[in-house]
Amino acid sequence: MTGRQKNLSIPAISVLAAVSRGSRYGFEIMEKTGLASGTVYPILGRLTESGFVTSRWERYDSARSARRPARKYYATTDVGEAELEKTIDFVQNLGGFIAPQQSADDNG
């Protein structure tokens, strides 16, 4: 199902990480990552296409009973979690490679 072979971009990693760490909908993800909405939504779309993230609509009747519009929730898939782990490893290695002189916490 992973159609995407390329490495994720840094904003995409942030979004994937934010979803994985519990941000469930668009505006929350924006706040968490500090990315603009125009960046976040296309990334969410792409992550969904790649199978890293799934989305589901809030049940219509529960929204209706609360007299509010339904909301779209995002969650990571197992594939997404695996990809995120792999990417974090990669980023940490990359940090060590790019800045070998610096102490480890500079890479955070």
């Binding site: 505006f27 924006m30 603009a36 909405s37 125009g38 960046t39 976040v40 939504y41 296309p42 779309g45």
Partner: peptide, 17 residues
């Protein structure tokens, strides 16, 4: 409002896709 500005990019992406 600031968030909604981003909807253009969202829409463009969807359109392209």
């Amino acid at each position: 409002f600031r968030y909604s500005l981003g909807s253009i990019f969202h829409a463009l992406w969807l359109k392209k896709k």
